[in-house]
Amino acid sequence: MTTTAPAAAKVPAALRRQRRRRNLRTLAFLSPWLIGFSVFFAYPLGATVYYSFTRYDLINPPVWVGMRNWNYVLNDYPPLWQALRNTLWLVVVMVTLRVIFGLGLGMLAIRLKRGGGLFRTLSYLPYLAPPVAATIGFAFLLNPGTGPVNHLLGNVGMPQPGWFNDPDWSKPALTLLALWGIGDLLVIFTASLLDVPREQYEAAELDGVGPWQRFRYVTWPAITPVVLFAVVTGVIQTMQYYTQAMVAGKVASGIIGNSGQSFEPGYPQGTTLTLPQLVYEEGFSTFNTGAACVISLLLFVIAMAFTFLLLRRRSGLLDDD
């Protein structure tokens, strides 16, 4: 392309042609995602906004109702605030404990010389258990009357909480379940701990600092980005928290929506309610789709706020190389 340049006027034309071909090629490579993004992201997002101003029961055509759904959800819908409070609790307690526990396990894992591989494999295993299966399993293990956990606690004279059946213990029980599936954090923390430059430890050792300070001034600065990543993705996962809370409530309440008793999400007493469950409940159980769209949009705003936090703080995500 560069060897022949017959006439001065022809060069830009050839260049333009080349550029256009390159653009077309880029477009072709991106096309699956461009279609996917518009059809399965941009369009439904716009449609959610539209439906949030309508009443649509999926049988009769949608009717424009203005701000009514927004008014209803924001002013007359107590479950929304309960779900937000629960989410806040889960963010503060569950996400924090998961990060601390994962970090602790990671430091333990790199200290193990023999059996370290086995330790990591076994610790990783629960993360793979399908959430529905793991939750049903925990509902059984933590069953207040017959579960092995309370049986063992009783044997050693400890108090036996009601776990998934007790409003005060339902979220701690979910947290326990989340700690059991710590595998993902364990792996990234172990890897990043191994990446901490050895020379810095040497220097610290020569200065004679203690283990805490070594952690504070050497380990911590090196792993901060990974911890931040774990926190932000943890928060976003908590926004989406659905399966475990839903299944635990169904199994523990003994009501699965059969024989005329409808299951109320959030059992016991709404303490495990989260926004996605409200979307499902309003959207697919009572078919109050307008209200469901309002809740969806609130969820969207919160999730995006955290995403921007991630993008801003970790500009590395957008780097080229």
């Binding site: 941009a42 369009y43 716009g46 449609a47 539209y50 055509p61």
Partner: peptide, 13 residues
Amino acid sequence: AATLAMLASACAG
């Protein structure tokens, strides 16, 4: 595009 698609869905209720 989104609006068009939306209209389509609104009419096919």
